[in-house]
Design a protein around this nucleic acid. Sequence first.
DNA 1: CCCAAGATTGGCT
DNA 2: GCCAATCTTGGGA
Length: 204
Amino acid sequence: MVPVSRAFFARPAASVAQDLIGTILLVDGIGGLIVETEAYDHEDPASHSYAGRTARNASMFGPPGHAYVYRSYGLHWCLNFVSGVEPLGSAVLIRALQPMIGIEAMQLRRGVTAPKLLCGGPGRLSEALGVTGALDGHPLDEAPFLVLARERDVPVVCGPRIGISRATEMPWRFGLQGSAFLSRRFPDRAVPHAPARGRRCPSP
DNA sequence: CCCAAGATTGGCT
DNA sequence: GCCAATCTTGGGA
């Protein structure tokens, strides 16, 4: 398997989010298959970058291919991959993994054993992989990160994003169709979606 | 300065 | 299904 290039992230966030489904994310050798992502960009009222650059979101305005890690509700860490092209301010939130490598370590960090509860949700995923604010701004092609490109296309669905109150109509949540490791099910309306060369997810 | 809201989660009714 | 935990940010007084 081949690591993804930095150029992979220098595209619109929704494209990156879609193409990340089925790739493998490891942090210090622990991780699994990315099964759920969400895209955010600078024109998006739900995005941290919408109001411009602040101390918290500075990484979103840095070069693509780096991590943006922020604290959610003062409690949980959430991992994003900085993406997009000028004028920047885009990122992809990694919402769920199918655990594959280092499951025992994840269980220890999480304090639970059920596989679906290890990495099903952005806060859980960060805890299981040991991601904290210390990794904010860190390059994704350098240790401890390893992002491995998928070798085959996978069936992807898209739908509305979760946990936001603005721009809820934008279908910028992507998931591995049929995966048992999603943080939540997609609505039945969710559009089956061909990755890579397939059609784009409908824009608002 | 004060305060409400938030890209969440886990526990309890 | 409802709510608390916990703290940064942004908007209003």
